[in-house]
Amino acid sequence: MSEVIAQIERVTREFKRGGSVVRAVDGIDLAVQRGEFVAIMGKSGSGKSTLLHLMSGLQRPTRGRVVLLGHDLGSLSDDALTLLRRQHVGFVFQFFNLLPTLSALENVALPLLLSSVRASEAAGRARQVLETVGLQERADHKPDELSGGQMQRVAIARALVNRPALLFADEPTGNLDSVSSEEILTLLKTTQVEQGQTIIMVTHDAKAAAYGDRVITLRDGRVHEDLATRSVAV
């Protein structure tokens, strides 16, 4: 049964740049179902990263409504919004954003420690998730002892350790070579297929977008195309 997990309605986001107002996102309507893998494509400046920030509650819209897991984000305080994100949303970024002084295991355990999970339990769960991304043997390595692909796998493990309802990925392969990119995308796809993980991924790479069930192309802050790619024979 389909269930809408994230929804935005007539959402607009404007920025002041110099003396003028730039409309990065221009009245977008979008609904994402639980278990979907949605790829958002577009050139730089098309509004795709802003859209991701709005849908995930990292930014608030200038106009319009964002509903995440049944919560109207406009009605939440900043603290309540932070809590909602911490508990139910995972993020993966282009530049990994790992803490350089912590080991892979400690980086993965961090979100649990922030949610007041006991240290021993946090370490156990972090180890488990590291194993699912194939990095159990790198648990004690610091980020600078890992390759780009391995760092991104740690970042994915960190994003998944809280079992988030929604995983947002912003150009997760933007800083990786093509073979590491494939490994990362295959890993994301596997979490979707095997665990029903909902994924919303921004990318400028059509090869990466091809892992999604749905490819949304933005142009000038609007949805130019919304294409379902699931099990269509070509």
């Binding site: 295959t186 090869k207 977008a209 091809a210 195309e225 269509v232 024979a233 070509v234």
Partner: peptide, 20 residues
């Protein structure tokens, strides 16, 4: 250009499924 682009996206998704 638009219709052809759709065809290519669908084909890439299909090839990716075969690869997976």
């Amino acid at each position: 250009i638009e219709t052809q682009r759709r065809v290519y996206h669908l084909q890439m998704a299909e090839l990716t499924r075969q690869k997976l």
